[in-house]
């Protein structure tokens, strides 16, 4: 079940990172609900998880300010624009209700991930203490 102590959380660690990133993106959509020409963005969880698990853990070293740091946390290449359900006059593609629903869904999944992690910690503690 658990490979080693350094990998206690398994997939939940990656999942939590993606949930947090997606939360920021959806918050940005909701903040820009009245901004003209703003294009709503989103992060596909499955693609981001695939990208995160295929990332090489050996990070490139950044020794000069002109070096581009490998930013695993930003999920830049996985962010895509949402296709609008209804065109709006000012070019804004944010559908507030849809974004709110997605935000709640994401928050709930975020909470679920945290619960999984909490239980994992409790299981480990139980094993360590031998209760």
């Amino acid at each position: 079940m658990i490979a080693g102590i350094e990998n206690v959380f398994g997939i939940h660690e990656s999942a939590l990172k993606i949930r947090e990133a997606r939360q920021s993106i959806l918050a940005n959509n909701l903040a820009n609900v009245d901004t003209p020409n703003y294009q709503a963005q989103d992060l596909d969880f499955a693609t981001a998880l695939d990208a995160l698990s295929s990332v090489d853990t050996e990070a490139l070293s950044v020794s000069d300010r002109n070096h581009i740091a490998e930013d695993v946390m930003s999920f830049d290449s996985e962010i895509s624009f949402r296709s609008p359900t209804q065109a709006s006059l000012d070019g804004n593609t944010v559908d507030a209700d849809r974004e709110k629903a997605e935000f709640s869904k994401n928050a709930l999944s975020h909470q679920a991930t945290l619960t999984f992690m909490n239980h994992q910690i409790r299981t480990m503690l139980m094993a360590i203490r031998g209760e």
Binding site: S24, L30, A31, V33, S74
Partner: peptide, 17 residues
């Protein structure tokens, strides 16, 4: 930490509104 960003984003939205 990326989660702190949510506060900035929502805060800017609130001040704009």
């Amino acid at each position: 930490m990326s989660n702190f960003n949510v506060f900035d984003v929502a805060g800017s939205g609130m001040s704009a509104q």
